[in-house]
Design a protein around this nucleic acid. Structure first.
Length: 264
DNA sequence: ACCCCTGTTCGGCG
DNA sequence: CCGCCGAACAGGGG
């Protein structure tokens, strides 16, 4: 389900619990979401600690606890974080529950494509350090984008936009939105893009991410009505600019929608 | 019943 | 090395 902006919204769902102690931890040990993570260590370390703060990079969330404890959550396709009452009883898909005196912080994921990571230590976890600059940051500039595209000249631009090491947090619908705004055909190879097209992709990426954070990221409210996202899942989806029927195909392994008139 | 899915990783192939 | 493909994870929704 979630891309960058939705992840940002889910990250904040646990904000009420900041400053409060974890009094109990419930874990569905052995589930796929805990692959590579020792759930017993997670449990033993988090009980008695306080949730301090959280941050997000791309689609990855990091929750920091007192005593040098770090919890990483990736929502995958169907994961979500939410808050429940302190007497919450975890259901089949509620794989991690952090109980506080006044609430329960819950991670739920029916399909289990998400990922829960844990690290104890003074230093930031290794899986957190290596990350590309956020699209909204100043470090994400035209030069960074150009250099990344230059490393994937033969790949369709749609596939390149989905690569998290170049465009952290961009997922399927945001990639389509960016290319529609930039008026670039998703199947076009990165190496075939001229300077003007690269600049338009850069600007569209900044715009789409910023506006998504202001709507979905802040209130989970809809992006502007004029965006492609409202059309791309419709069977009879049309271009918001002039109502030309959208086309669909699999590009970069993912369903892709575009306007054959705007995007060349 | 059938088909599709806002994610990521991995092995195999060309 | 590059990039693509299918599989894997295990359901849920239309």
């Amino acid at each position: 389900m979630p891309e960058l902006a939705e992840v940002e919204w889910y990250r904040k769902q646990w904000n009420d619990g900041r400053g409060d102690e974890i009094v109990d931890v419930r874990v569905h040990t052995g589930k796929y979401v805990f692959r590579g993570t020792n759930t017993r260590v997670l449990q033993e370390n988090l009980v008695g600690k306080k949730l301090l703060r959280s941050t997000r990079r791309g689609k990855q969330m990091l929750f920091e606890f007192s005593g040098d404890n770090w919890l990483g959550i990736h929502l995958g396709m169907t994961g979500k974080t939410h808050v429940e009452s302190p007497d919450f009883r975890p259901g089949k898909h509620d794989h991690l529950v952090l109980y506080q005196q006044k609430r329960a912080l819950v991670f739920t994921d029916p399909r289990e494509l998400g990922h829960v990571l844990f690290h104890h230590g003074a230093d930031e976890p290794a899986w957190w350090k290596q990350h590309a600059p956020e699209v909204v940051s100043r470090e994400f500039d035209q030069k960074f984008l150009d250099q990344f595209l230059d490393r994937h000249l033969k790949a369709p631009i749609k596939a390149v936009l989905l690569m998290q090491r170049g465009f952290p947090g961009i997922g399927n619908w945001m990639a389509d939105e960016i290319l529609w705004r930039a008026k670039v055909l998703p199947s076009k190879r990165a190496g075939k893009l001229n300077t003007r097209e690269r600049v338009k992709i850069f600007r569209a990426a900044k715009f789409v991410v910023r506006r998504s954070l202001e709507t979905l990221g802040r209130h989970f409210s809809d992006p502007p009505r004029t965006w492609l996202i409202h059309q791309r899942w419709e069977n009879s989806g049309v271009c918001p600019r002039h109502r030309t029927p959208l086309r669909r195909a699999t590009i970069g392994g993912r369903t892709t929608a575009w306007c054959p008139r705007c995007q060349r």
